[in-house]
Write a protein that binds this DNA or RNA. Structure first.
Length: 658
RNA sequence: GCGCCCGUAGCUCAGUUGGAUAGAGCGUCUGCCUUCUAAGCAGAGGGUCGGGGGUUCGAGUCCCUCCGGGCGCGCCA
């Protein structure tokens, strides 16, 4: 609702200034520090003052009385050195916000498609907290985009033919001397991803002990890429089993996908050949005949500099003819935009708990009723910021092909890594040097098997939540308590990963992550539960049960009464809650524009905090004045609805009881 | 060496195209449960926004510079 008012004010003001002063200026708006000063302010007169060479305060005083009426705006004042401050019609805002609710905008079926690629875990070991941050950020951003009416396709890229899978294959074959059948049995076990986590770390050690063993990896990788022998068979087996483990893990926190594109198909269907032909055709790659890159196909990244003699270039095809990761990524990015003259075949792979189907790519025999994947108008790649160099090269590749618009619309949705706080690393038994102990954080290494596994963390969160739930509601059915503990655990985890801005390194710490108090997901859920309790008890009163049976709040309150309860000064505290509750749309829009899901997390917490404060000060069920009680109920309803909606966008569900 | 990011309260972090008196959580201390659930609320204390210079009506925010820290820069992915 707030955003609607903001837009009205911006448009009206811009038009007014154009007509009266002949000036085109973008109108910035902000929230005044206190509601005494109004609800929406603009410093536009300062900008105007510069252009017209007049005093800002004088201009503001001249403009304020002349502004045309704006629906929802009661009056204007001039404040400070020349702010124009709008005072909203409180009762109208309350009514409109309550009526508008928090419904998502329906996407147009023909709207341009946005592809969001996230998760992308190497299918050779269990997921860890770093992967959780990726998935939670990506998933939340997808929810925000869909809520604002965008058509979104979620892709989770599976690098099933890479070095990491090859290493685990080497582990099974040469470290453990397993046969395919042995591995097949292991892969059917529930914690196969944990098994591979340890094996992968052992393989890393195995290579370090004797560098000559790397040859094993190279042979294995080649067999996997070309798809022959026991190695390829094992790689397929392992990667598919691990992908299923990852999907299970992500389903625990409410993350779902549309498509799993696999590297094996990019190879088999010769996506690279098509991309390479394009790159050659348009002169975007050159064959190096001399220098350190002799024998390779490279993409020049800068003009040859006479001073340095060696222009910057990225190798796309190695001298042995194999394609680098970036090369394959360029091909994949081209496919996402529908710029590659080929497509995958698709098969159903899995059904999420919601009933949604996840598709996987195939090289042949696709199912005929598969949706049309790819052909995006915009692509977000959720990848940690350590890969920004490579993401830039992918975009440079598109530009080199002349696809400037698609390069612009290739967004690296970057976020900083999740490391461990030194305390946490020591808790986990990793030895630290004196120097590391003084650091803000220490990096984990999947290669060495250090880090916090996603499922372990979730188990701990659920156990902790379960203990809290059991202490409060020992007599409730077991299944209900388990479901609530799960909802609380998910909320704690998702909020913890979403409250940090993307460019903040998260120094993971069990104490913070396992907390259910203060700025946490459970705190936000608790506010919703408190509101629900009020309605449950209110509806249980004999005189109300009839009206509340359909879940809708039916109380009688005239606009005049609402206006009276919201009037300053006594009504200010209510008005501030109304205003905040009515600002979800503005928070979501800001989050989408800035690509920063943390904005919505912060908003949810603020609203929960404001509601808890209100809850504490006003006892609704014992309110004697019927009109006042009706008002308080409506206010509670508004705050609850908006908070619930904000939480759903964060992937958090409030349980009935806590 | 080059590139990107960060430096705000004891700790962890917000601070939306530059805007009004810089905020929150945790921790510390003090109060509040016969009340709609205390996973809560209220209060106290805590700041040269890393240092210096500049831009302007106005800088935590933009520019320059220095200091400190993180991450990249491979015929790995």
């Amino acid at each position: 609702m707030y955003q609607v008012l903001e837009n009205r004010i911006r448009e009206t003001l811009a038009q007014f200034l154009r007509e009266r002063y002949g000036i085109d200026v973008s109108i910035a708006t902000s929230r005044p520090p206190k509601t005494d000063l109004g609800e929406i302010a603009t410093p536009v007169c300062f900008e105007l003052a510069r252009r017209l060479r007049r005093a800002p305060r004088q201009l503001a005083e001249e403009i304020a009385p002349l502004l045309p009426p704006i629906p929802g705006v009661e009056r204007w004042t001039v404040a400070g050195g020349g702010y124009l401050n709008a005072y909203l019609d409180r009762a109208a805002f309350f009514r409109d916000a309550s009526l508008a609710g928090a419904a998502a905008r329906a996407p147009h079926p023909e709207a341009p498609k946005i592809v969001v690629e996230h998760t992308n875990i190497n299918p050779n070991k269990a997921a860890h907290i770093g992967h959780l941050r990726n998935a939670v950020l990506g998933d939340t951003f997808v929810r925000l985009l869909r809520h604002t009416g965008h058509r979104v396709e979620v892709q989770n890229y599976i690098d099933n033919t890479g070095v990491q899978v090859a290493d685990v294959v080497v582990g099974f074959l040469h470290l453990e001397n397993r046969r395919v059948e042995d591995v097949r049995q292991l892969a059917a076990q529930p914690k196969f991803d944990f098994y591979c986590w340890d094996l992968y770390a052992r393989v890393t050690q195995f290579f370090e002990e004797d560098p000559a063993r790397v040859e094993l990896r190279n042979r294995t990788l080649k067999a996997i890429e070309e798809g022959y022998g026991i190695e390829a068979e094992l790689a397929e087996l392992i990667a598919t089993a691990i992908v299923r483990c990852h999907l299970r893990t992500m389903e625990r926190i409410g993350v779902e996908y549309d498509l799993l594109p696999r590297e094996s198909e990019i190879l088999r269907l010769k996506f690279w050949d098509a991309a390479f032909a394009l790159l050659q055709q348009r002169g975007a790659v050159v064959y190096a005949t001399s220098g350190k890159n002799a024998g390779c196909w490279v993409m020049p990244l800068s003009e040859a500099d006479e001073a340095t003699a060696a222009p910057e270039a990225k190798i796309l095809v190695r001298s042995n003819g194999t394609v680098t990761y970036v090369g394959k990524d360029i091909a994949y990015q081209l496919w996402k935009f529908g710029l590659l003259d080929r497509d995958f075949a698709y098969r159903r792979f899995h059904t999420h708990p919601s009933g949604h189907t996840v598709w996987i790519t195939a090289s042949e025999a696709g199912e005929p009723d598969a949706p049309r994947f790819g052909r995006a108008a915009q692509v977000f790649n959720v990848i940690d910021s350590r890969q920004s160099y490579l993401q830039n090269i992918v975009a440079a590749g598109l530009r080199a092909l002349g696809y400037h618009e698609q390069a612009e619309r290739s967004v690296h949705f970057a976020y900083e890594m999740v490391a461990l706080s030194p305390r946490c690393a020591e808790e986990l038994g990793y030895p630290l040097s004196e120097e590391e102990r003084r650091r803000a954080h220490v990096e984990v290494s999947g290669r060495r098997g250090t880090g916090v596994k996603a499922d372990d963390l979730l188990d701990r969160l659920e156990a902790r939540a379960r203990a809290e739930v059991d202490a409060r509601h020992p007599d409730d059915p077991d299944a209900e308590r388990a479901a609530r503990a799960h909802a609380i655990a998910v909320s704690a985890l998702r909020y913890y990963l979403l409250k940090y801005a993307r460019n903040t390194v998260v120094a993971f710490d069990f104490k913070d992550a396992l907390s259910f108090e203060g700025e946490t997901g459970p705190y936000c859920q608790y506010a919703v539960v408190r509101a629900r309790n009020i309605f449950r008890k209110w509806a249980a009163q004999p005189t109300h049960s009839a009206t509340a049976a359909d879940g809708r709040l039916e109380v009688s309150l005239t606009p005049e009464q609402a206006a009276r309860f919201l009037a300053p000064p006594e009504g200010n505290e209510f008005w501030e809650l109304v205003l905040l509750a009515g600002s979800l749309d503005a928070a979501v829009e800001a989050a989408v524009v800035a690509q920063e899901p943390a904005f919505v997390a912060k908003y949810a917490f603020q609203l929960a905090q404001a509601f808890n404060n209100f809850y504490h000060r006003h006892h609704i069920l014992t309110e004697a004045d019927a009109a006042r009680q009706a008002f308080l109920l409506m206010l509670t309803s508004l705050a609850m609805q908006q908070l619930e909606a904000a939480l759903v966008l964060l992937g958090i569900e409030a349980p009935e009881k806590m």
